[in-house]
Design a protein around this nucleic acid. Sequence first.
DNA 1: GTGAAAGCGCTAACAC
DNA 2: GTGTTAGCGCTTTCAC
Lengths: 338, 338
Amino acid sequence: MRTARPRALTLRDVSAAAGVSEMTVSRVLRDRGDVSAATREKVLTAARSLGYVPNRIAGGLASQRVNLVAVMIPSLSNLVFPDVLGGISAELDDTPLQPVVGVTQYAPAREEAVLYDMLSWRPAGLILAGLEHSRAARAMLRAAGVPVVEIMDTDGESVDCAVGISHRRVGAEMAATILNAGYRRIGFLGTHMPEDHRARKRLEGFEAGLSEAGVPLAAREFYQGGSSLVKGRELTERILTRKPDLDFLYYSNDMIGAGGLLWCLEQGIDIPGRLGLAGFNGVEMLKGLPRRLATTDARRVDIGRRAARIVAGKDPRPDGGVIELVPTFLPGDTIRQV
Amino acid sequence: MRTARPRALTLRDVSAAAGVSEMTVSRVLRDRGDVSAATREKVLTAARSLGYVPNRIAGGLASQRVNLVAVMIPSLSNLVFPDVLGGISAELDDTPLQPVVGVTQYAPAREEAVLYDMLSWRPAGLILAGLEHSRAARAMLRAAGVPVVEIMDTDGESVDCAVGISHRRVGAEMAATILNAGYRRIGFLGTHMPEDHRARKRLEGFEAGLSEAGVPLAAREFYQGGSSLVKGRELTERILTRKPDLDFLYYSNDMIGAGGLLWCLEQGIDIPGRLGLAGFNGVEMLKGLPRRLATTDARRVDIGRRAARIVAGKDPRPDGGVIELVPTFLPGDTIRQV
DNA sequence: GTGAAAGCGCTAACAC
DNA sequence: GTGTTAGCGCTTTCAC
């Protein structure tokens, strides 16, 4: 049997112990207004010795301000979002704000529910991944009355403002790079996730880039579920079995790209001579593969930082509402040099 | 200029729109008490069309109950914690509770601050990694008056209860396995993190296991910062340069183990003949390496689930306060068969 | 089945 | 520099 919950301490208890008014205690604990050093000491000592922890539920209600920033991302088990969160935390660290994370699992209905939920805490700002949301979600975002920053993507309309990269352009530029290196029989490998709009836009940009040069996308292969090395291997084997004459594989993320790379090397395929490879993300953790996989760095940390700066009021809402960062192409050594 | 924040809607607004008392609206929105179907419909319609989002700050204060579970973990950029969180979420999904995550960065001072912070929201329960906390943190945990589950580790005393595995035993069993396979010149590679108590305990258990058989640990190599494939390569090269005659390398996690494995294969080292390798965690994402790295699965998802079940009241607090799960040894093919 | 009154634990605003 | 009063937006409790 757990011992009965002892009534939690309140300001009143500290007030009694310190022999000053609740108001004074409140001021000391929040470091607000003028309080004499002596009183301050008394209060702090009393609060500490009692083990008082302020009740923010009450505080938030009274002050009508809650120092939370709601952050909504599709997934945690996706090497990219921890980086974004890192950028956000780093930038909020010297402010009173703190991030609260909600995971939407690439499901619009779930996003709507999580948003409703987060809004019920009346956060001071909102950061969420992507520009695509349900009607209801967009309505909630507009009505929130606090800064809303949509991150990762700039191809579309934001509710309030956006910080990200153009995935369409990433795809198009990768197409140009690949064509320029002389590859012509090109395949694409990615997740089958209609709701992963950024992956979709990269593919669209990629195909557009290819077809501008009159090159069709020769094959595509999709998978379900999380990314892993094995998935990359299986996909690669599958696509090359179907179309053995492909000379380039563009993966929608580095993890499956890495799996593909390992598989190809084991098969003795000449990389990048006979077959070129590229991924997406620029995941730090995966540096150290037998070859450096060509990829595009998605500026994840910077995106988090810039978004947080806006919400924290360190930076103004950008003109036009959009900050488009420039992704960095990392050539690696899985694309032929020209 | 952002438009001025419109006063957020309150129950009063919905009440006015629906033509019933605030109390009735509240009952409908919380699905409590008897409300006639007609009234219910009226209220729901009004709430929806206004775009009303309940204010949980006020609700929490009034009801003295907040359906949050505080979850405190050392890091997100560590393939293991997303799994734990997944287990927790899965188990809380059919309850009114939801997890709120705080990241402590393996820093006791930071853990204390995050804890203070989370307690100020008066959560309905607490799940936190590890059994080692500052005096102040332990005091707060004891005084919290809600279920507290310490996870990942069972080697030590819990404040309330614990769900985890014995890292000491993991280390000892790996030692036995390695010795049994005939390896004798054994090195250890891990992070230099005095506050990663679980890694420390694995090493202690490992050394104890070796020395029981009269085998000393022949070398150890530590690194700073996050784990990655490159780190694993560098460490491996370093330790083998120092002690070329080592015949086994035990890594404190799979990521650096994978880096080491790749490096060794490139050097043409016979794995597992001339040199055996093992990691720790059983990270799904890394299956698909050229060899399956021997490792121990840490039961991360189950740990999350069991902890959540206790907090949610689905399971009682365990007898003796501890649930020790059995980690699974995954032999892979980087240890010689006996 | 519905409503009215009181109050949750704080802080804003103002008084002294 | 410190205290008093009112009230944040809900839910509890009890009356009807």
